[in-house]
């Protein structure tokens, strides 16, 4: 794996491998010193062309727990949108000598373009409406932990699918891992086409809600109101919100998921957000080990070595704060 741009680029086996690796890293989080020297000496640049506190913090923590140096390079999307060449910005970062660039951009495809202009590994931390692969991985991680796996599970994704990178990456990941996916929402919020996505579509949440193992809600962005995609927030909530009434019809073991931040009272009623079936905070927690796994796979020892030890063989030695910097690290030991 050279870059992580889209879930579409990963096989089901590679997805499972990353989830397994994240399980190993999750254990580290519960240690008294939750840190290992796996990426010591490596530098990760957070190039966030669009604001994001949650994802940036999560990547930041993940990199630090692997002992990588983390640098923030904040650029406003508008500067590249208004004419500054994306290439100039990226080459500036590249020239500083970094091993990975974590990119968040408001334009679909920007991380893919950036790959052409850097030697570093590029991690897509969300691009436009396109993809948010680590979100999909952490969602799979959460579902797998709670339900044992995705195979044969029925997952409904409800909301603004068309403008959602979370939806696109989740669909790819859920379908690859064998889940049955139903997209729910009015036609105006569905993508132009979905015939090759391997999903079902419903315009009626009531028809779907009692059947699913996972009810995944997307954030409704208030600024979409101007685009005549639906008449009002009130009507949206009535027809496509997970209201208290609808949540009662969910199966007792069903999971309620949301990528955050939630609009309580719009796509999800406040009481439902705090329902025992809601795993929203589990999703957030899964973000760190998932991003550790991704950074490790891209930058860790043996990244280009086909004979590297399998995940199960990786020994998780604790980091020692007193190790001299020149002490060689055994290959595959983190």
């Amino acid at each position: 794996m050279r870059h992580l741009l889209s879930i579409a680029d990963l096989s089901a086996d590679e997805l499972v491998e990353l989830l397994d690796l994240a399980e190993s890293f999750d254990e580290i989080q519960h240690r008294s010193i939750p840190k290992v020297p796996a990426l010591r000496g490596k530098t990760v640049v957070m190039a966030f062309f669009e604001d994001s506190t949650r994802t940036r913090t999560s990547f930041d923590l993940a990199a630090r727990r692997l002992s990588a140096d983390v640098v923030n390079f904040s650029v406003s999307s508008s500067s590249t949108k208004k004419g500054e060449s994306l290439r100039d910005t990226v080459e500036t970062i590249d020239a500083m000598g970094v091993q990975a660039i974590v990119v968040r951009h408001s334009s679909s495809g920007a991380p893919r373009q950036i790959c052409e202009w850097t030697r570093a590994s590029v991690v897509n931390a969300g691009d436009g409406w396109h993809q948010h692969p680590t979100q999909a991985l952490l969602d799979c991680f959460t579902i797998r932990r709670r339900l044992g796996g995705l195979q044969g599970r029925h997952i409904a994704i409800c909301g603004d699918i068309n403008h959602s990178r979370v939806a696109r990456s989740d669909v790819d990941a859920f379908v690859k891992l064998g889940a049955r996916v139903t997209l729910v929402g009015p036609r105006t919020l569905l993508p132009d086409r979905w015939d090759d996505w391997g999903v079902d579509v419903s315009h009626d949440l009531d028809e779907v809600v009692s059947e699913v193992d996972v009810m995944y809600l997307l954030r409704i962005q208030q600024e979409r109101l101007g685009d005549a995609l639906f008449p009002s927030i009130r009507e949206y909530r009535t027809r496509w919100g997970l209201t208290v009434d609808r949540a009662r019809r969910l199966q007792p073991e069903a999971l309620i998921m949301h990528p955050g931040p939630m609009n309580r009272g719009v796509e999800i009623d406040p009481e439902v957000a705090d329902d025992g079936r809601s795993v929203v905070l589990d999703q957030v927690a899964a973000g760190v080990p998932i991003r550790m796994a991704v950074l490790y796979r891209l930058m860790g020892p043996g990244q280009f070595d086909d004979n590297r030890a399998t995940v199960g063989d990786v020994e998780l030695a604790p980091a020692s704060g007193h190790e001299p910097d020149n002490k060689p690290l055994a290959q595959g030991v983190i």
Binding site: S108, G109, G128, W129, H130, D192, D195, D196, W197
Partner: peptide, 13 residues
């Protein structure tokens, strides 16, 4: 163009 590719790429069609 609005179609299967724009839908997949997350680009306006």
């Amino acid at each position: 163009h609005e179609g299967a590719w724009s839908a997949r790429l997350g680009l306006g069609g």
